[in-house]
Structure formats: structure tokens, C-alpha cells
Design a protein around this nucleic acid. Structure first.
Lengths: 218, 218
DNA sequence: ACCTGAACACCGTTCAAGT
DNA sequence: ACCTGAACACCGTTCAAGT
């Protein structure tokens, strides 16, 4: 209470009347709360009312900031896609001039991120959200991430370490392998024998090794 | 109405009083209706009440046959896993003594089935259903399908056309590629350029070719 | 045995009303 | 501008009651 009063006084002194009246940035707070709740439970049981309660506003307040539940979900997925793009950029940066190492690193980051935010990852790729131009920034983020992958492939071809061929298709084949492993892991579909005896890094390496063998220039 | 009366008369003549009193096999009818509805709309919006209405019973009748909504979903997924196992068996049968062709055929069947029943496929792998021993027959069907894949790899190794290595891990790497492509397709995540210019068969071949290159004995 | 209808606690969404 | 509370049509689930 005291803190709040202080903040208000400070505002009155310093700046012209600020926009929000209860919260600093309800939009962002809702998004954060939703990200947390979706990982604590799962996509299906995430409710707008629960999010509102967690943030401390009425259950209709989110409608000021999101058209409906779906566009809130799109917001969450958007955060995920940006994380993905960043991870990829980091992998490229880290292993300069070594496409194979970049791919390995990117794959590991992809799987790692999926395991840290499994339900967000599910949301991003499950087809719950429409993939037409309802959420153009979502498609854009996805395409940006894919572009990163294509650039790795392209550089590998230029260096003569990856085989020639349609970049789109080679990139898709590579992504498929990594994506498949990630979704198998977070879906809990890993065959039992593997889940008890092998660690994630080993599995990721196995998949990327197979992909890299398939990509190798002959 | 007339038809119903006729059926009842027929029963009275032909057979000892049959068990059900409104429906021949409500369990099966519910499962079928659910499979249809899940593909017409999507997982999230599938409701028990809608299924009951479609079948023509009260909204509480399904509880005689399924403990709750989740176990009904598990039933749907179970059907999907059996379809998958059959598709794999067919692929093996069709290309006797040719592991590479078996793999190619199995991959195509996998992707094809996913595209025919996208929402069922989503349900099977999305992690909505628990993967512990809550639904043991589900895990069993999944493992059976994976065993089929392992046998193809094993035969390839025996014939000297696939490289040596842990069968579990090689099978996982192969499955990852196919699974990833299938989920990218049904999730609507295929990059735009590919979706307008390339057909499914071509994409499947590209992925399996990469996998097979990676599997090849050196 | 199998099914129904009322009841309960939850949803998402809309809208008039408050500050 | 931003938030609230009542209201509506939907859920899943339970349970006493009907045939």
C-alpha cells in the first residue's frame, strides 16, 4: 500500500498522467501469467479466468488487450517463435564458418527449448492456431526461423561440405528430423528402453549425425 | 420408424434377447462418432455432449462406456495406433527383402495416414494423454509400431545395406524424420514456398532419401 | 444392465455500467 | 481509457431415478 502511494506521488511529480490505472502493463502481465500457467498444467486446461485471477483482475479485463482466447494463445506462441529464432542465431554465431557444428548446435538448442517449454512448443505447432494470415506476425516469425536454417545449409553448400540440391527441401528434411525428435520427447512418446538408458544430448547427436551423413557432399 | 419396428420384429424372431436395449454397440458407435467429429472440427472443441447428441443418446450415456472424457480420447488414439501398425506391416509385406524400399513405403504411409486423420494424429502424439501406464494398451500399440520399424532397420543391417549401430537409436533417428515431416504438414507449418510448388510424395521422398543416405553402410 | 434429467461447478464471451 | 459484475450459452461430471 505504502509503496503504491509512493509510486503515485512520484508519477504526479515527474511525468504527465500515465496511461494505465491499475497495472503497469496488463498486456504483458497477462502474457507472462499465461506462459507460466500453460507450463504448470497444459494447453487444454488453460482458462482466461484462471489467468485473470492470477494477475489479479476481473475475468473480463483481458478482453481489453486480446480479442479472444485464441489471440492470447497466438501471443504466447509468438513469444516461443521469437525464442526459437534467437536460439538459432546464437548457434550460427557460436560456430562461425562451420555449418555442420552450427547445425548440431541449433538442433541441440531446438530440443533443449522444447523440453524447457513443452506446452508452449505444442501450442506453436499443434495446429490449434490457424496458419493462414489471421496472425501474420506468427507466420513471419516461423519463416524467419526457417530462413536461419536455410542459411546454414546454403553456407554448407557454398563451402562444399553439404551436397547440392534444392535448399528449401534440404532445409525441410533437416528440420523434420530435429522437429520430430523434439516432439517425440515432449509428447512422452520415446520408447521406454531409450528413455531409461540414454540422455537427450546423445539422442540429439544421433539424429543430427544421421541428418549430416545424409547432407554430406559425396 | 418403420425400419426400426421391422428390426425389432426380426430380433424377436431370430435370436435370444440381445443385451443392449437402445443401441447395438453404443461403445463402438460413440468411438466412431468421436473420430468423425474430431476430424470435422478439432481436438479442443470436441465435447462429450456433442458426441452423445450425434449418436442420439443423453449426454450422460457415454459414462456407461468410458470412465471420463480422457479415456474416450484414449480410445480414439488407440484406433489410430492400430491403423499405424497395420500400415507399417503392409509396407514390410509389400517390399519383401528390400529394407530401403520398405522404409520408403512406410514413411509414405505414415505421412499419408497423418494427412487423412490429422486431428487423430495430433491426439496420439500431443501429450494430451498421459504416457505412463494409465492406458497400457496405448503404450503397447505404440511400441509395437516402433518394433516394426526396428525390424526393418535390423534386416537392413543384416543384409549389409544399412550401417552398424544401436538399432534403437537408428530407429529413433529414422522415425524422427518421418514423424517431424508428418507433424509439420498437419500442423500447417510447411513454409509457404514449399506448399505451393511441391507435392507430398516429393517431400516424403526428400526426407526419406536424406535418412537413407544417413543410414547407408559406408 | 443401461439410460435419463436435474443439478453443480466450471468455461468463453457480451454488454451495460462504473471510475 | 480501463476495469467490473451480471448474464448467457456452453462445458464435464455426479447422482438419484426410471425401464
Amino acid at each position: 500500500m505504502t509503496t503504491q502511494t509512493a509510486t503515485i506521488k512520484q508519477r504526479a511529480k515527474k511525468s504527465p498522467p500515465p496511461k494505465p490505472y491499475h497495472h503497469g502493463d496488463l498486456h504483458q502481465e497477462i502474457l507472462c501469467a499465461a506462459c507460466e500457467l500453460i507450463e504448470e498444467n497444459n494447453i487444454a486446461s488453460l482458462s482466461l479466468r484462471e489467468i485473470a485471477k492470477k494477475v489479479g483482475v476481473s475475468h473480463t479485463a483481458p478482453y481489453r488487450h486480446f480479442k479472444d482466447k485464441e489471440s492470447l494463445l497466438a501471443g504466447i506462441a509468438g513469444v516461443g517463435f521469437k525464442e526459437l529464432a534467437k536460439q538459432l542465431a546464437d548457434a550460427v554465431e557460436l560456430h562461425h564458418d562451420n555449418p555442420a557444428a552450427q547445425l548440431q548446435e541449433a538442433a541441440h538448442g531446438y530440443v533443449q527449448r522444447a523440453m524447457t517449454s513443452p506446452h508452449c512448443t505444442q501450442l506453436m505447432f499443434s495446429g490449434i492456431l490457424p496458419c493462414d494470415d489471421t496472425y501474420p506476425e506468427l507466420v513471419a516469425s516461423g519463416d524467419a526461423a526457417f530462413d536461419g536454417l536455410k542459411m546454414i545449409i546454403e553456407e554448407g553448400q557454398a563451402k562444399g561440405v553439404f551436397k547440392e540440391g534444392d535448399i528449401e527441401i534440404l532445409a525441410l528434411a533437416t528440420w523434420s528430423g530435429i522437429h520430430g525428435l523434439a516432439l517425440i520427447l515432449i509428447g512422452g512418446n520415446l520408447p521406454e528402453i531409450l528413455s531409461i538408458s540414454v540422455d537427450i544430448r546423445q539422442l540429439t547427436n544421433a539424429v543430427t549425425t544421421t541428418m549430416l551423413e545424409g547432407l554430406k557432399a559425396s
